[in-house]
Design a protein around this nucleic acid. Structure first.
Length: 775
DNA sequence: CTTGCAATGACTGAT
DNA sequence: TCATTGCAAG
């Protein structure tokens, strides 16, 4: 076999690819061809005659695994690539846990609880234990449980751990140990594992069943781990155990890009690799092929402020490029307009595609502003994350019916759908069943399916309804073996009454839910169509991984050429020609939660480093002086990170000019205090006519919009839905001019009835309709 | 038991 | 701003 592709590599890369024996540490600077090294290394291993089933590659996302398999397939053939063990820790080890499930007392069909399920379970336990929900906040308790699991502290170990118990006692939350215990018990009863259990239970499996560990140790001759700097203790130990026999472990990472400590990631794992694997080889990939020199230098000048790091010198031989740009805005809304305007300019000036551009921000809450601004300028965009597709109510509802069909003990799924669509099984009934079930150690399903067998106080009518519901689920179960995933899911969507319910209440919201369900069914269809002949296509197999999927795994054809907007965390591993990094303000980025502890601040700085190094050609920063938080405006100041970049590589806004411009006058408005926190500073530029005070805010918005419209000649400037009112004359791109007859609903699903002069009466969903106000 | 409305409190980050 | 919760009426 020829290894032509090795010629694409530089010296270090070449060594990293071909040094296949013994432990290797690859320190891969941003943009240094890390993915190429990983794919070529695997291809190289295969070319040396290794069985693809003996190679285990752990990636950070499913998408990365999919793309890497694709590239390896191109090099060595898809039939071979398909047999590789490649995926995220969670997906690989859930597969192994299903195989070995009986050893841990689970069935191989166990459910995976996602974060929503877990939190909802924690919540009901707090209620059941009659604890004060102000002291025991769901998020905090869940966080304690989750981080315990990531550090391999089981519920039993938790109570006996003095240090942990002392912390809980000090915080006056001594019952967390009991909540954890009950939580673990309930998960087990429900035949469910949460995300953290997938790693914890793998460790337990390997600890308690040495013969199982040995089997996998022998079978995985080569182990590769991507993004090693973001592994937590549980993941670290899995790798260590599996690699103990052959010791052919290759970890790839960049300590400068460690950004997941909140998920238990330990940067020490990569820093201590030398101690864990003596006699290791180290390869430093330092040439950045992705970005311009200015971008690389700016990023270097920033990250140098961090203390703990592995020494390396990342450099670029690309063009010098432009300096980092900075956009300064007076309000968060204006920030949106400036960025959207700059995107339009870039597209026009540089002749690039929408897909070459990304907007990155620190928190999901910032997405809304950019969605609005881009929509108004008719710039197509796609949002990653926030409320992921799979977390939407309608999607979870249908999936819960499916989960219940496969595993009737899945109590979280049962509670979700037992009364949706409404079938007269209300809170009282559910509460009684749940209480009895918890007290007597039976599952809710037991009682629901045979209410006469248990002394729960239920009247005959209710019992009838319960039996009807359980018969419905049983009818689905009977179809499990004989139908494929798509047919069954489609049947469930209809027979459960979900589709009918959405259809019956014919609102724009429900229409969009209906469409989402169709999309889910389409993706299930795709799953059944894409499975190979020898793979089972039934619903239980579809459900195995669905909890582990994210938006990125569901990318649609029509979404390819759009501006990407997402959090910096979600942008990890991606790259774009032009990157806009928004909200560079103190207490937002760096986050308010991270400014006290130095190690937290260092992680924020690494996060900023990751953001800058996503850019190939140009990075633009932006910040605002007022930003709405929880619906009230608050003052902000520019982030310290901006000053930390060496001035040689950044173009700061001109202070002189800034002060001369009334538009940027600040300090005076906003913040708490007043009854009227509205920034009225646009008054200064405007040719305002006097209006009644109630309309003041709307007018301000209107002026912002039209002022911007004059500045940027976008094809069809759209008015903010919030300023539209009954009686206004508006223009629609397709229907022409008309008058608003009425406005119903609430943002973002506000709709208007408009009587158009040519096209007659139309109902328009304002978040999509492009209406321009004529007068 | 269901529905609708007012009050309330949450925003880091995500497999 | 938005989703969840508590309460009153049907």
């Amino acid at each position: 076999m020829q290894e032509e592709y090795l010629k694409d590599l530089n010296d270090v890369q070449h060594k990293a690819v071909t040094s296949i024996n013994g432990p290797s540490l690859v320190i891969a600077g941003a943009g240094s061809g890390k993915t190429r090294v990983l794919t070529y290394r695997i291809a190289y291993l295969l070319s040396k005659g290794n069985d693809p089933r003996s190679i285990l590659s752990l990636t950070f996302t499913n998408k990365a695994a999919k793309e890497m398999k694709e590239r390896i397939g191109q090099l060595v053939g898809f039939e071979v690539a398909r047999k590789l063990w490649m995926g995220t820790f969670h997906s690989i080890f859930s597969k192994i846990l299903r195989r070995e499930a009986d050893k841990l007392g689970y069935s191989s069909n166990f459910t995976i609880y996602d974060t929503q399920d877990s939190k909802s379970l924690v919540k009901s336990i707090i209620k059941e234990m009659k604890l004060d929900d102000q002291t025991y906040k769901v998020n905090e308790v869940y966080g304690r449980i989750s981080s315990s699991k990531n550090n391999l502290v089981t519920a039993r170990a938790y109570v006996t751990n003095d240090q942990i118990m002392k912390i809980d006692a000090m915080n006056r939350k001594p019952k967390i140990a009991d909540i954890y215990k009950l939580y673990a018990l309930r998960c087990k009863k429900a035949d469910a594992m949460d995300f953290d259990d997938l790693l914890l239970n793998t460790n337990i499996l390997f600890r308690d069943f040495p013969e199982v560990l040995k089997k996998y140790q022998d079978s995985f001759r080569y182990i590769l781990v991507d993004e090693y700097q973001d592994t937590n203790y549980a993941q670290y130990l899995i790798v260590k155990k599996l690699a103990a026999h052959h010791k052919n472990v290759c970890v790839v990472g960049d300590d400068a890009q460690s950004i997941y400590s909140f998920r238990g990631a330990k940067i020490e794992n990569i820093l201590n690799f030398r101690n864990d694997y003596p006699g290791y080889n180290i390869f430093k990939l330092e040439q950045n092929y992705r970005s311009t020199q200015n971008i690389v230098n700016a990023a270097n000048s920033l990250i140098i402020k961090n203390k703990d790091q592995i020494k390396k010198k990342v450099w670029s031989a690309n063009d010098t490029g432009t300096k980092i740009q900075v956009l300064e805005a007076s309000t968060d809304n204006e920030e949106g307009f400036l960025v959207a305007g700059a995107i339009n300019d870039t597209i026009y000036r540089e002749q690039v595609q929408y897909r070459d551009i990304a907007i990155l921000y620190r928190t999901n809450a910032q997405s809304r502003i950019f969605e609005e601004a881009l929509r108004k300028k008719n710039i197509p965009y796609k949002v990653f994350g926030s409320l992921s597709f799979y977390q939407r109510k309608e999607i979870k509802d249908l999936l819960s019916y499916c989960r219940l069909t496969v595993n009737p003990n899945d109590t979280e799924a049962l509670k979700r759908v037992i009364n949706y669509p409404a079938r007269g099984i209300g809170n009282t009934t559910q509460g009684r069943i749940e209480e009895y079930a918890n007290l007597h150690d039976v599952s809710m399903w037991e009682i629901v399916s045979q209410p006469d067998e248990y002394p729960v106080e239920l009247n005959a009518g209710v019992k009838k309804k319960l039996v009807a519901f359980s018969n419905l689920i049983k009818s689905f179960q009977s179809l499990l073996a004989e139908t494929d995933a798509y047919e069954l899911a489609n049947h469930i969507a209809n027979a459960s009454g979900i589709l009918e319910d959405l259809h019956f209440k014919n609102t724009p919201e429900n229409l969009s839910k209906y469409e989402n369900l169709q999309e889910l069914l389409n993706s299930i269809k795709e799953f059944t169509d894409n499975r190979a002949e020898d793979e089972v296509k039934s619903l239980d197999y579809y459900l195995e991984n669905v909890a582990l999927l994210t938006d990125a795994d569901n990318e649609k054809e029509e979404d390819i050429n759009k501006v990407s907007i997402m959090t910096i965390h979600a942008s990890k591993g991606l790259e774009f020609d032009y990157v806009f990094i928004a909200g560079l303000e103190e207490e937002l980025f760096p986050s308010r939660m991270s400014i006290t502890l130095p190690q937290d601040l260092e992680e924020e700085r690494r996060l900023f480093y990751v953001a800058i190094t996503r850019a190939r050609k140009q990075a633009t920063l932006s910040y605002a002086y007022t930003r709405y938080k929880w619906g009230t405006p608050s003052n902000c100041s520019p982030s310290r990170f901006i000053e930390e970049i060496d001035p040689a590589f950044i173009e700061l806004p001109d202070k002189e000019e800034k002060n001369a411009m009334p538009r940027f006058q600040r300090k005076s408005y906003g913040v708490s205090g007043g009854s009227n926190g509205n920034p009225n500073h646009f008054e200064k530029t405007g040719n305002a006519t006097t209006v009644n005070p109630g309309l003041q805010r709307k007018l301000t918005k209107l002026k912002t919009a039209s002022a911007k419209a004059a500045e940027n000649d976008s094809p069809f400037e759209v008015s903010d839905p919030d300023i539209l009112e009954k009686g206004m004359t508006v223009e629609h791109q397709r229907f022409g001019t008309g008058t608003i007859a009425s406005i119903e609903g609430n943002s973002p699903n506000k709709k208007a009835t408009v009587i158009f002069n040519g096209a007659g009466q139309k109902q328009l969903l304002l978040k999509f309709a492009k209406l321009k106000i004529i007068n």
